[in-house]
Write a protein that binds this DNA or RNA. Structure first.
Length: 491
RNA sequence: CGGGGUGUAGCGUAGCCCGGUUAGCGCGCCUGCUUUGGGAGCAGGAGGUCGCAAGUUCGAAUCUUGCCACCCCGACCA
């Protein structure tokens, strides 16, 4: 045994890092702030990509690809946008190296300075809208419904695996529309897609809502988001969908001739989710035994561990195991038979627990004789002996049960950790002592939000869509408020 | 960039205050035998520029100075 897992209560941050390491999801790289995503971690991301990509296609979108480099001047065209990203950009200034004068290694060749610096994209609105100008002339060219799977770079001061890395993988959708109405509908539609994905694939309940002015995307008219609650009581922004109005169309001069023959600016949206979702998955479901994956996103849904004492038994048990594997695979399940002779069963049990494999089947000579199997589920760690001929329907039903149970468990957690605060003392106490989502009245001003943040580190995660109108008084200023906002400390 | 901390084998660490044989231990790794239904046992073995550099000293992992790296807490943020 290397070492035991840290527990969630002891040190949440260490617990999280242990899981990333022990489940072989990722590791720090030689480049500060950047991580290496290992094959198992990447396989989870690929499952997410596949599900999301299908949802995008089902809603009429196509994939395309735009350059990694963005000319510096593009950033100056939208004032809020440049303001929002200026402080975290990686910049390419030269295009050549040369041998060092002292013969030791290489140095930047000063004579190879770029006339205009290139920014490594922190997000692609600018390069995409510069391109869309050429794609749009008439209302017949609209809408443009394009998504890009790419990497982006944001030079963050402090990084955490998956949650905030200097380089991260994501998808960014960028759409162009003839009318404000249509663009708004698209913004809502994609937020719904994200919420659907979070709840039905990741098994993480999310709040849908609008961002306050402070938290709004740089350059957007309105930002919608899904917010999830992690097990340490902190909130995580899991996805955003932005209504960009005509801001980028004006900045990049993207106009079209309408049916009425008038020249108008195009309406825009953009929306994205990133590898941060892998971090959300880890933090939402894992326990002190390691990662817990929802079946729909598990690269291995069922693992079979053979148990044996000698070569004869090994051959017998593995023969049965291969048949079991084939019968499950016939139903489209992702099954791994771990027939390695280099590790013992107990070792393997632990390993697949670290890795969050939803269902484990143990199969030994005793089972072959009795025509039974031992089935263990990762979410509750329960073990059962079942008749071998019931295996396939049993596993199918169990995977479904686990998927639903994880969601219900996370939902229960969120409900237990969502509280109302009606005055300042209550608010501070809840944020400090309990964490979680705190629903409170707020006077609607950026200044008040800023002061609340300074005092408690809590920010407005969103103003939920489904919060009804409820008159009240701001917990900080006492000024009138129309409804409650969701406050929390966030990642 | 501020405040704190840590650098010793692949990983985790003891030793440092108070300088002195061959730098100790656990995990992992290699070999052999016995094992295999929840991280096996025994025996043997390999593996170290003690973060880097300079200084003090007969002698430095240990003391001094400088540098570097990483971690935690802030500021920044998906």
């Amino acid at each position: 045994m290397d070492k035991d897992f840290s527990t969630r209560e002891e040190n949440y941050s260490k617990w999280y890092n242990d899981i990333v390491q022990r489940a072989e999801l990722a590791e720090n790289s030689a480049v500060r702030g950047c991580m290496v995503i290992k094959p198992y971690g990447y396989a989870i991301w690929e499952k997410m990509q596949a599900a999301l990509d299908k949802m995008f296609k089902d809603t009429g979108h196509s994939n395309a690809y735009f350059p990694l480099f963005i000319p510096k001047s593009f950033f100056s065209k939208e004032a809020d946008h440049v303001e929002g990203f200026a402080k975290e950009c990686a910049i390419v200034t030269h295009y050549r190296l040369k041998n060092a004068p002292d013969g030791k290694g290489v140095v930047v060749d000063d004579s190879a300075r770029l006339e205009e610096e290139l920014i490594i994209r922190p997000t692609s609105e600018t390069i995409i809208w510069d391109t869309y100008r050429n794609w749009v002339q008439s209302y017949r060219d609209l809408p443009i419904l394009v998504n890009q799977w790419a990497n982006v770079v944001r030079w963050e001061m402090r990084t955490r695996m998956f949650l905030r890395t200097a380089e991260f993988l994501w998808q960014e959708g960028h759409t162009a529309h003839a009318t404000e109405q249509e663009a708004l509908e698209e913004t809502y539609r994609m937020l719904d897609v994200y919420a659907d994905f979070a709840e039905n694939f990741m098994a993480i309940p999310v709040l849908k809502g609008i961002k306050s002015e402070n938290e709004r995307f740089a350059g957007a008219v309105e930002t919608f988001c899904i917010e999830a609650l992690m097990q340490d009581g902190k909130a995580l922004q899991a996805g955003t969908s932005h209504f960009l109005g005509q801001n980028f169309a004006r900045a990049f001069d993207v106009k079209f001739a309408s049916k009425e023959g008038k020249l108008e600016y195009v309406w825009a949206t953009s929306w994205g989710v990133s590898t941060r979702l892998v971090g959300a998955l880890i933090m939402a479901h894992s326990d002190d035994h390691g990662l817990v994956l929802p079946p729909k996103l598990a690269p291995i849904q069922v693992v079979i561990v053979p148990i044996y004492k000698n070569t004869e038994q090994y051959n017998l048990v593995c023969e049965h195991a291969r048949k079991i594997k084939a019968s499950l695979e016939q139903k489209g399940l992702l099954v791994k038979l771990d027939d390695r002779d280099t590790h013992k069963p107990g070792w393997k049990f632990n390993e697949y627990e670290f890795k969050g494999v939803p269902v484990r089947i143990a199969l030994g000579p005793r089972d072959v004789e009795n025509k039974t199997l031992e089935i263990a589920r990762r979410d509750t760690l329960e073990k059962n002996i079942i008749p071998a001929d019931q295996l396939v329907p049993h596993v199918e039903a169990l995977l479904d049960t686990i998927q639903k149970n994880l969601f219900q468990r996370a939902l229960k957690f969120r409900e237990e950790n969502t509280r109302r605060a009606d005055n300042w003392d209550e608010f501070v106490q809840l944020i400090e002592e309990k964490g979680g989502f705190v629903l409170a009245h707020w006077d609607g001003t950026a200044e008040t939000e800023e002061k609340i943040k300074e005092a408690t580190k809590a920010t407005i995660r969103c103003i939920p869509f489904d919060t009804g109108k409820e008159p009240g008084r701001c917990v900080f200023t006492g000024k009138p408020s129309q409804g409650r906002a969701v406050f929390a400390r966030a990642y």
